[in-house]
Design a protein around this nucleic acid. Sequence first.
RNA 1: GCGGGUGUGGCGGAAUGGUAGACGCCGGGGACUUAAAAUCCCCUGAGCUUUGCUCGUGCGGGUUCGAGUCCCGCCACCCGCACCA
Length: 835
Amino acid sequence: MTDTRFDPSNADGRWQRAWDEAGTFTADSNSDKPKSYILEMFPYPSGRIHMGHVRNYTMGDVLARYKKMRGHEVLHPMGWDAFGMPAENAAMEKKVHPGAWTRSNIEGMKAQLKRIGFALDWTREFATCDPDYYGHEQALFLDMYEAGLVYRRQSEVNWDPVDMTVLANEQVIDGKGWRSGAEVEKRKLDQWFFKITEFAEDLLEGLDALEDWPDKVRLMQENWIGKSSGLEFSFALSNGEKLPVYTTRPDTIFGASFCAIAADHPIAQALAANPEVGAFIDECKKGGTTAAELETADKLGFDTGITAKHPFTGAPLPVFIANFVLMDYGTGAVMGVPGHDQRDFEFATKYKLPITRVVAKDASEADAPMGDEAEAGDGVIVNSDFLDGKSVEEAKADVIARAEAGGWGEGTTVWRLRDWGISRQRYWGTPIPIIHSPDHGPVPVPRDQLPVELPEDIDFDQPGNPLERHPTWKHTTCPITGKPAVRETDTLDTFVNSSWYFLRFASQPADAPFDPEEIAKWMPVQHYIGGIEHAILHLLYSRFWTRALAHIGKLDVNEPFAALFTQGMVTHETYALGDGSWLSPDEVRKDGADWIAIEDGAPVTAGRVVKMSKSKKNVVDPDAIIADYGADAVRWFMLSDSPPERDLPWSASGIEGCGRFVQRLWRLFQQFDPAATGEDKPLARKAHQAIVAVAEDIEALGFNKAVARIYELTGATEKAAPSESRNFAIQTLMYLSSPMMPHLAEEAWSVAGNDGLIADAPWPEHDPALLVEDEVTIAIQHKGKLRDTLTAPKGASKEDLEALALASEKVQRSLDGAEIRKVVVVPDRLVNIVT
RNA sequence: GCGGGUGUGGCGGAAUGGUAGACGCCGGGGACUUAAAAUCCCCUGAGCUUUGCUCGUGCGGGUUCGAGUCCCGCCACCCGCACCA
């Protein structure tokens, strides 16, 4: 018997060192065990580990430890998504080098992760800002460049004239730069792009096979890729030009009453010299893009005076410049069919254009008047010459066929997906390995000159890209001519860094990004866990990179992540003072039913339970909690109660409960009694059932259910008298809880006199014979309502159960002599008497 | 607007069409203690005329011997996309 309290401040660090020294979680790619690659989205080293990280990594950790117990060779690595803007912002604000800031954050966060006791293979750790990593990334960029998957073109960007940098759309708030507050300008810059659109079809079709991805994420990607099919054809214009348009509804072509083109369409631009047209185009560009603005924005049009000749009727259709037509989708021009498209309907109503019905419920309703909105539904074609009587689908096919036969149009597929712009005018990223030669234009940096390293001696005294104004860095020579040339000063979007890091974890040779044979041993990732916020960008880019690398023969894997799990957020109640300012949880206390500020007793309003965030101050620091309760209590909290895909509300009482449970288990573990004899069959049964149930729950990532099972077995074991069965239950609890509370389990295992580590122990075997109950509780219903329950031997016959049910006093009272019409007996379950 | 999800006690949540509320938190009562902490035991969906009965899984219908679960129609909230032709 040892101390009756488990002391995490002593035990946690001891076991963390023991795992480190034994290399317990180092993955051996040469092992002949079945392999499991378990990965959580690697963190950005922003400074501190937060509860969201803890929850994310605890889930992966339980899986990794469980798989190991199940005899798998597990790869569970960790690294750092280390390039990005916060480091540059820190450099500007705190006058520290982005690299130094990042490195110091990594050091701190790694120590934090170690204190939580994660079963990570630290031998494979890297940061994406290591020249070794980004050098290989540059090599892969060149591979893709040579394969024609990278190109350069002029593109419009959000330019912040004060910070002198490009902003992502997300960084433009109400038309102003999020940092500088300056009015953002549209600028055309030469930008590098990945040809992700070349893989659009592939990326879309691949989604079908990702059965272990959430449907939600698959749908979001499907919508993002946005495949649509229809007809692209040209109108002959009265000015002699052609106007190509795209429509998904060629069946409604006889309902076209106008054409509309985008404000930046070439035809509109050509007319812009006319001051009226110019003014209208400016007006169009002013419109906001927020949901509310779009919802209420009026359809605006400007009649160009040009007409378009209808391909079948020859009728002249007016051509408008319109604010609702987008230049970068389809051809930037549409045929307006007001009867069957809501936007066209609104536009036609406003400009008094004809609204013709060309689809009706059936042929007899061809002349039914249109209502106050467009009818986009299915039906039969009417008022459409040769299409009359056809279904929508037939008519689409017919029109496309005639257009193709007549040579004035063809059936096409249009995608919403755009190519991926990867140029960033920033310092802290992977330098794009290109040299701009005066004679040969952009030329790849020769492979033997990789990595192109970032210069260390930079300053952030002025806005703009420090690489651009560095005195020497960009000056080099053309690899072809040897004459002076300049380096590309843009760096790669940080999403490129995270598009292949999972490959580098699986294999990290010195002279190549990865070794395909090693990759084949581990990939695809069996469980990828992270936040839903990456549903599109990161997950789509990673799928694209994996496919692109497979396409150019570097890999044999198409899909990087076999199963994806998106975990919920860690939330916390918010606390606000009367003036709307936020207080942190440790600045408030409960005073009766109300909350008050500890400092001055001011009344505090407890608000909504929302994601922990610095701005709302509703954060709880993992370190402080670990110091108070130990790592296992925090891990247990992260797994308890809420299903992992839902949000987890943090609470002080919740973590206290977890801390209590750690001690409760510890006390129980001390009660292993070598002298105890005898069998306790019900308890043995519960233990064996728990072995199976907890395993099933973990495999289904139902951690909250696994936790509940462990609570149940704990309660039953505590109540039982000493016996061999009870000892077995205690040992079982040690094993079952070890993936979740590894420090406690190691300590108890060691105190019990076992050699080695429980982390290396196998998952306990269960006895199938003990999974089956020999007595069951039968529910007795009368007309579907519960009247009584009784215990019967398992497998009792229907007749016996019926007789037992009718013998029940409660049942007889409920029946009250009524005539029995029917008795439903579900063996081992219930008897329902119908009167 | 389009697409998706969620809705069960004071709270987080369990529940192959078969005893709704497992398990945890909060709360109440008790034991131990000089006292506290810790620990242990009991109670804890609502209501009622309380050996028991009635109601109860967002709302309204339906299928079924039996519905939180299946079907139809609504409501609320959350998330994603959005003038995508």
